[in-house]
Design a protein around this nucleic acid. Structure first.
Lengths: 410, 410
DNA sequence: TTGAAAGCGCTAACAA
DNA sequence: TTGTTAGCGCTTTCAA
């Protein structure tokens, strides 16, 4: 107390009990007489006592802190993800600690390994794995603490994982576009992978591509490299949108000249167009084009995430191409801004609440089984049963949400 | 080491030195022979030693953790703010710990007071104060640790603060709309405050309202309650957008019947319109209206933040009113998605990098002056000089960014 | 330049 | 039901 902050000792003295009794009373442990507990609580309140978690952690080896690692905060997807995870963790009396890696696999590995908090302070970790190098000895990276991977899509799971409905979801998205009448559908997200090699898809975007491809083939539509564009962040989405727009413009010119139908694939030469530089001031700038741009009258775009979809819509708008009038666009994730964007964004809305529950369940189960190293008798990786739970895996649900970007004329 | 994790003692033993020397060597302290340091580092590496921050914090009373408290993660503004703050804090070798209050003042107060980390674990705290009750004894709330308020706009500063250019920025936004030819400009953000009472504006949104009002009066334009709408979150923005749209629709009908000009203020009766429910499926729904809706041909909307601006654009679109063709809209903040939205959003872009630098500077200065309670000789609020720095205050810069929402026809 | 002693505040284990 | 003892791993202090 000399220092200004009351300690447990002070509370105990004030209440006329031992520190241990005070500790038990404050933690609501059984075996404390009700009148004693009341005395202790009164004393704590009187002194404005605050437990020193640092000391508590040091002694008990437990922090109740769950570490969340994501690529960045400032993205519609990750901000929703962190919000949902934080809520779930908080609601269970645990504390979330969120870190961003800025898309650096090194930073992700660092967060799991060299970070002095990891493996000592955190009781568990949740990692959105996109961008993390594959084949890392993940289970060892975090010092044996419970680790849950989000959407890592490991073929042979080595640690607990919660995955997105990548293949099913994107197949549903593509089927929906086809049902809406689209026949020339661009895919934005992953680089083109030949159909035969899609069997080995090992990451979320590749799986989404596989789902989209499957839906195309099922419908008797072509799947080839002229219709697949890289993208995943909004700026890449804009680039993809521009590329798609140029194909469309080329098709329109071809169309005028030769009366070719929407399905035709020819080459044309793009001219120039005035458009706005979305990143700043208005400019009239001419578009540099190569001599050969495949003319494709795209009428739909199936995006691997909402972030990219916004970019695509933006990129198309730069060419005066309207969504959904000229082209229908669907995203994936179900980010919050999809509801109030103009046009509002059709999407595969994944159930992040479910994801949060699954992930925290997995961690809590391991903690309760005593798989967490602590300084008590349960030290090491041992637990009551003497065994370690094998990796669990779960896939979350989704819902196709129809909004303006695939439907209404606005 | 018995437990699996090497301790400093183990490293010291491995290197053949005392724990103290090992500690000094690992922390790069002066006064350790180079050869000794090398031995220690080699030992640490060999054993894969990781410092136990929990013990370090307990003894030293310092954590190097900065607590950031914001309303929520899943908003374009806060996600950018937390990202920027995190980066700045990390770049200085400190660790950010981010917490969301979900817009609950109680939660904010709890974060500062009852949270067991606060005032014990954190070396400093940064609080975005919107929504926090006023007149809280802030300086005492966090146990005397450095606290920086963001955009709290206290008239008499009690703690360090970094404010946004609320009044100047919004005045610039309004002036810009006027320069663009707008004459009937709605204001979205704060509830209406009569001009005379604006002098006492005590929070960010009220100050923005004051700036907007000032620009209107300077230009000889009216300022009254028919043109001010509540809003600040996107859903409130949508509501405001609907209200604005109804005024416009009423004006259009009046216009047809009586040839009234844009400046006329009359009442009319709104009919029905088909529009999309942005939150889900497409609906054709009739709009309930009151009998008397002031007919105002709004041609501009000045929003207190970007989030609301997106909502307004969405709300207008529900009535088939286009931005910027029919109405120009400007936001405030400069969120990331403003660049790739369609239309891209004109805004008052505030310099968050500057904000982060100011805020962290303020905290670091107090830490270095020894104003942080620790367990060493500098205990209490004393410091070398024996004085406590008075509250600092800074205001960050801004830049008006012109994008499509106020300019181009798309 | 290095080391020994002490203890931060708490809680597990055990004793009363 | 309550109290005593010991020590988590580190760092401050002070001595060598």
């Amino acid at each position: 107390m000399a220092n200004g902050k009351p300690t447990l000792r002070d509370v105990a003295a004030e209440a006329g009990v031992s520190p241990m009794t005070a500790s038990n009373a404050l933690h609501g442990k059984a075996g404390v007489k009700e009148s004693t507990r009341a005395k202790v609580l009164a004393a704590a309140k009187k002194l404005d006592y605050r437990i020193n978690l640092t000391a508590s952690m040091l002694k008990s080896g437990r922090s109740n802190i769950i570490h969340i690692i994501v690529n960045e905060f400032d993205s519609p997807f990750y901000s929703k993800l962190t919000q949902t995870l934080s809520r779930e963790i908080t609601s269970r009396g645990l504390t979330p600690f969120i870190e961003q890696t800025q898309y650096s696999p090194d930073a992700a590995e660092h967060a799991l390994t060299s970070n002095p908090f990891s493996g000592q302070l955190f009781d568990g970790e949740i990692l959105h794995a996109t961008g993390l190098g594959t084949n890392l000895p993940l289970a060892k990276l975090n010092g044996g603490r419970p680790l849950v991977l989000l959407d890592a899509c490991e073929e042979t799971p080595t640690v607990d994982a919660v995955n997105f409905p990548n293949e099913e979801g994107e197949r549903a998205a593509m089927q929906y576009l086809i049902a809406q009448g689209c026949r020339n559908i661009a895919i934005v997200g992953h680089t083109f992978v030949p159909r035969a090699k899609l069997a080995h898809a090992q990451n979320a975007f590749a799986l989404r591509l596989r789902g989209a491809c499957a839906a195309l083939l099922d419908a008797g539509l072509p799947y080839d490299e002229t219709m697949v564009f890289e993208g995943g962040r909004s700026d890449e989405g804009i680039t993809a949108g521009h590329a798609i727009a140029e194909r469309i413009m080329a098709a329109r010119r071809t169309d005028c000249g030769a009366g070719a139908g929407a399905g035709d694939r020819e080459t044309g030469t793009a001219g120039t167009a005035d458009f706005n530089d979305a990143s700043g001031k208005i400019t009239g700038r001419s578009i540099e084009t190569t001599d050969k741009i495949p003319a494709i009258a795209f009428d739909g775009v199936c995006c691997a995430n909402d972030f990219a979809a916004f970019g695509v819509i933006r990129g198309l708008a730069d060419y005066g191409i309207h969504v959904p009038q000229d082209v229908k666009v669907i995203g994936f994730d179900g980010v919050t801004s999809g509801t109030y964007a103009t046009p509002s964004l059709s999407t595969i809305q994944v159930d992040l609440d479910q994801l949060a529950k699954f992930a925290v369940d997995m961690i809590v189960e391991r903690i309760e089984r005593g798989e967490v190293n602590d300084n008590s008798s349960n030290a090491g990786n041992s637990n009551d049963a003497g065994t370690v739970l094998p990796p669990s895996r779960a896939t979350i649900g989704y819902q196709l949400v129809e909004r303006e970007s695939t439907t209404a004329i606005i």
